[in-house]
Simulated scan of single mutants.
Amino acid sequence: MNDPVRRRRVRGDGVDLAVHEQGDRSNPTVLLVHGYPDTHAVWDEVAERLAGRFHVVRYDVRGAGASSRPFGTRNYAFEHLMADMRAVLDATAPGRAVHLVGHDWGSIQGWEAACTMPDRFASFTSISGPCLDHVGRWTRRAFGRPTPRGLRRAAAQGMRSWYIYFFQTPLLPETLWRAGISRAFTRALEIGEGVPARDGHPARTLPRDGASGVGLYRANMAARLRRPLDRRTDVPTQVIVPTRDLFVSPHLVGGLAERVPNLSLRTVRAGHWVPRSHPDAVARWIAEHAAGAAGGPLTAAESRALRRARVAGDRR
């Protein structure tokens, strides 16, 4: 039987956030943070598989889904995103360190959170969303002390990041989203990623989510890439690296261990939307990483719970 989803509203930093919870609240909490242009629903399959073992929390970030859509680029800066995350943590897991998981912009937020408020997290799993400060330093190193291999890798990442530069264009990205580019996005997921549309993902709010979420790029990207901060974290961190990601190069993990001493890497032969295409593997790795951070492997009962959730998810 699927764990029911409990919905609530949490007041963030001047916005109302749509929060979704599953599982027993007495279990360790896993916070799943979605990226752009998704909503919490991108995690449906993973959350279903984890809810038998964890208290699973998801929320629509500002500008997405059923959460508020503040106007103005400044309202999407990291300081507001971190205040929102703290509000969700305070409401759903007060006084407890949670296992943080982020995909795409959820992972970019996760790096900021793990580096600036590490006491709130027992572990961090990053998927297809690098630390912007690390990317800035990685790029500077590639061009500052150039080697043919380093230049090729930097140039390849620049080509993958074409949309970042496009999103800096005033008004045009928002206009295209509202004009119907969401249909092309959905089709690209099906063809390029092998991820068929299903109820909830892509969300019905996609045109508005895409238009509002452009603020994430405008408010944070340029400043961090041009003037990267000295970011480090001791939070046990797992980076899941999809080797077929069209937007994030696997090479961006280079040099990361210098700033994340408790680091583990996993590769998966998948595209960018790996929470949708490989939910079994993602859920298993999250659970294993959480167990390792807590000091031990999964118990037999926990492994059985994950297997039951996987079978239930396959029957949906």
Rank of each mutant, 00 (worst) to 15 (best):
A155G: 11
Q157M: 11
F167I: 06
A64K: 02
A154D: 07
F54R: 06
E112V: 10
S68R: 10
G110H: 05
P148Y: 07
L132G: 01
R58V: 00
M117A: 11
R145A: 14
C131M: 09
L100Q: 03
H103W: 09
G144M: 06
Q109H: 06
R141H: 14
W43A: 03
L171P: 02
G150T: 00
N75R: 15
R49L: 07
F78H: 11
R96P: 01
M117T: 09
I164K: 10
E79V: 15
R141F: 05
S67M: 04
L171M: 09
A66F: 11
L50Q: 11
L171K: 12
D90A: 11
D119C: 02
M85G: 06
R69S: 08
R74N: 10
H103D: 06
F167Y: 15
F124M: 07
S126H: 02
G150R: 12
R152D: 10
R141G: 14
R137T: 12
A87R: 08
R152E: 14
G180Q: 13
A184D: 10
R53Q: 09
D104K: 04
G158K: 04
R58A: 02
P173M: 07
T175L: 15
F71K: 13
F121Q: 00
R153L: 15
M82R: 15
W43F: 12
A47Q: 09
G63P: 03
F185D: 08
F167V: 04
G150Y: 04
H80W: 09
N75C: 04
Q168G: 07
P130W: 12
L50H: 09
L81Y: 01
L89W: 03
T92L: 00
E48K: 00
A179H: 10
R62N: 13
A47P: 02
D38G: 08
V101T: 12
A184K: 13
L50I: 11
A154I: 05
A64F: 15
D84K: 07
T116G: 04
S107F: 05
V57I: 14
R53L: 14
F167M: 13
Y165I: 09
F71H: 12
A87I: 05
R86Y: 02
L172A: 13
Y163S: 07
R120H: 11
G63F: 01
W162E: 09
E174F: 13
P130L: 11
N75E: 15
C131L: 14
S123F: 03
D38I: 00
D38C: 11
A51P: 13
W162T: 13
V61A: 13
R153N: 13
R153T: 12
H80F: 14
E174I: 11
H40P: 09
D60H: 06
T169G: 02
T147I: 03
P146H: 02
H134M: 04
R178M: 12
M85Y: 01
E45I: 00
G110V: 00
P70L: 10
T175K: 14
R49Y: 08
V57K: 04
L100A: 07
H40Y: 14
R53K: 05
I127E: 08
V46E: 08
T175V: 14
H134A: 12
D104R: 11
E79T: 15
V88I: 12
S123L: 05
P70T: 03
A91S: 14
A156T: 09
P70N: 09
A155R: 14
V56M: 03
T175W: 15
L132S: 06
R141Y: 03
G95L: 00
P130T: 13
H99G: 04
F166V: 10
R62S: 05
V42H: 02
G63S: 03
D38Y: 10
